[in-house]
Design a protein around this nucleic acid. Structure first.
Lengths: 233, 233
DNA sequence: CAGTGGTCTAGACCACGGT
DNA sequence: CCGTGGTCTAGACCACTGG
């Protein structure tokens, strides 16, 4: 026997990838049906299904009932962007993390934020500004607005020792969010807190977060000069 | 009967999410075993398994043999970043796409690129510079280096009408890549081709691509002023 | 070493959608 | 219509790992 062990869905997945890469199944072509593949590999259809479903999730093939499984022509690669807390990022660099609260104010929700979050008029929001340092060098300036009605006891937290990011993570089990990345010039507070000349290009991440369709927070995180966000796929 | 239809893995997934969000199962707590949940929901263990496996992939719970399923304390959110070709991005904005080749040169691989790609000394690379326009306004400047030994007949392609991105997609079935995002100042060619003042902050995406562990290409894409990359999770 | 998730099976029924 | 993927089941064996 050349096959000591039975084959698993990973073997099928890898073999399918192999055949796509070696053009056995060119882009746009139709793969055999699950039943045919199951017969070829000598396994149950469920095993083939699991393998092909995974490839479909990765965007390598598309599947349609009755239409069969097809190799995609223009793969829409999905880079998985691990969004974690700043502390993690810094500690993963083997640097010492330091947090500092800059300001904490309870305010009436400004109009632009009302529009962005879609919250009712006259709502109160907690406005926070903080700095995150790595080895005592400025790493990230965080400006955040928290919807008080979504997280009422935010008013009892002073945010002196724990950052709002981590506080919210513990507060809101998990949520959905909308993120945008961009490049902005250093101005006003940014150049001051990040200790850089005016106009310096900075990497900026904005994120709006909802919990069960209630807007919770909007945050703007601006990173130190030269910061790179990396990922793989 | 209050349950006309049998429950599926999605129902279980949603119910588990519900219980996490409503603190029935707080962060860090242990969930019932698959067998127990299957009994509660009146379904097969495989169905529970599929639901929980999906939540584990999303990073909402962690699973360990013998250790059980646990709600994660600090969720590492994974934003899925759809990386597509520029043409797509532009056409999705209902803008007219235009491509222009700026330069095309066959060169000896520079040292920095050798180091980055890990290719042998004296290797030849195709160096390309291109512009992508949306409605005749500069959208993205692309600078690319292609490993000739990985894609030999790149030398036969003039890239006058089809961009290197799309050409490579058709050439290399699919591949893995490393991406980095950053903010850079406009200098030299950038300010010229993107028609902006020197020093303007620009959003830049760098990507190194491999095909079956062979380095294929390195590309630096710099976007027009004010560009935002968006995503959701 | 025993409990838990990881996976496979053989069969079944269903739902979508191309012909 | 009817072929294809989508999903569920009941049972089984395995592999890892915590107590």
């Amino acid at each position: 026997m050349t096959e000591p062990k039975s084959i698993g869905f990973q073997d099928i997945r890898d073999e399918v990838i192999e055949r796509i890469q070696t053009r056995v199944w060119p882009q746009g072509s139709l793969l055999p049906t699950e039943l045919e593949l199951a017969a070829e590999f000598g396994c149950a259809r469920a095993t083939v299904n699991r393998a092909l479903r995974e490839l479909a999730e990765q965007g390598i093939v598309t599947r349609k009932r009755k239409g069969g499984t097809r190799v995609v022509t223009t793969p829409v690669k999905q880079a998985k962007l691990p969004i974690t807390v700043v502390r993690q990022t810094i500690e993963d660099m083997n640097a010492q993390y330091r947090y500092a609260l800059v300001s904490r104010t309870l305010i009436d929700c400004p109009a632009w934020l009302q529009a962005k979050l879609g919250i009712p008029e006259g709502a109160q929001v907690m406005h926070l500004q903080c700095m995150h340092h790595a080895d005592n060098r400025p790493f990230q300036f965080e400006e955040r607005w928290i919807n008080v009605s979504a997280v009422p006891h935010v008013v009892d937290e002073d945010f002196l020792t724990v950052g709002p990011n981590e506080w919210l993570l513990a507060e809101v089990p998990f949520s959905n969010a909308e993120i945008s990345f961009s490049a902005v010039p250093a101005t006003g507070q940014l150049q001051e807190f990040l200790s850089i000349p005016s106009g310096t290009p900075l990497f900026q991440l904005e994120r709006t977060t909802w919990f069960r369709s209630d807007p919770v927070t909007f945050v703007r995180m601006t990173f130190h000069q030269g910061f790179q966000m990396r990922t793989t796929y």
